[in-house]
């Protein structure tokens, strides 16, 4: 997965100015800042200073290419994407269908950073997206999307044909405060055929559910996959604090050292 890096060419340097519109709508990250009155009174804070993104025209954004992360996949790490206008342009690029799967995944991953609205159009794109890694990126983008679109997208992801998409959907589910609406779908995935999916589902159930699901989660302790067993130990540590030590005792001789050590730490 080697993407040729092609940052917008250097002639743009002369126009790369930091002249954002001070009157424009604040980005999502800014409007969500809770300003608790008591905390404010006790600890005066410096005024939040929005950073205006460097401006690129729609044409430039349409041509913008990602750089390559240290892990080897492309990403738009430039501050130029911190602008709501970028969401519209990037969604347009996705809708045009001309980009490679790697670039499409990077375009989707950049959407939450734009502060622009994208969830509804992403849900529409999800139905036609053929590449699993792009759908994985979409599941991650739904973590902080408005509820209706996010639930629609995540529910589709939980039933996706590809295990990696189901895995990310189960993971993203636990990032949402309104996650319980999808809990039954995720619980079902604890018996998925794929161990990565089972592990992600167990982890998320451990984050969202309560002690009433401990027995279901405990099934994972006997899973043939070490990652599943580890997530089951972790989940039970959260939802069954009193019973977890006894439940995991048989894992003190587990063949996997991470599982074994995790079980050891829970013993009195």
């Amino acid at each position: 997965m080697r993407t040729q890096t092609l940052i917008v060419s250097m002639f743009l340097l002369g126009t790369a100015c930091d002249h954002g519109d001070p009157d424009r709508t604040a980005r999502a990250g800014e409007v969500e800042v809770p300003q608790a009155e008591t905390a404010q009174a006790e600890t005066p804070q410096a005024a939040v200073t929005p950073e205006s993104p460097p401006s690129l025209s729609r044409e430039e954004l349409h041509a913008l290419q990602p750089t390559v992360t240290r892990a080897g996949f492309p990403r738009f790490s430039t501050a130029a994407v911190n602008d709501p206008i970028v969401a519209d342009v990037f969604l347009l690029r996705l809708e045009e269908g001309q980009e490679s799967p790697e670039i499409r995944a990077a375009l989707v991953a950049a959407l939450p950073r734009t502060g622009g609205e994208s969830a509804t159009r992403l849900v529409a794109l999800l139905t036609s997206e053929s590449d699993a890694k792009v759908r994985v990126s979409m599941m991650a983008a739904f973590e902080r999307a408005p509820m209706a679109a996010a639930h629609q997208g995540l529910r589709a992801g939980l039933g996706d044909a590809q295990a990696q998409v189901r895995t990310q959907a189960a993971t993203s589910f636990a990032e949402r405060s309104d996650a319980t609406a999808l809990l039954d779908d995720v619980i079902a995935l604890m018996a998925d055929a794929d161990p990565q999916v089972r592990a992600a589902a167990i982890r998320s159930v451990g984050l969202v559910a309560d002690e009433s699901h401990a027995q279901d989660v405990a099934q994972g302790l006997g899973d043939p996959d070490a990652k599943v067993r580890l997530e089951a130990v972790r989940a039970l540590r959260r939802i069954d604090k009193d019973g977890v030590a006894a439940r995991v005792k048989f894992l003190l001789t587990d063949e996997d050292d991470t599982v074994r050590l995790a079980a050891q730490r829970l013993q009195p």
Binding site: E30, Q35, A36, T43, Q45, E51, N82, R113
Partner: peptide
Amino acid sequence: PGNFAIPRFGQD
């Protein structure tokens, strides 16, 4: 303080 603002982290 809980409301300590970290705009870079909100943004990205």
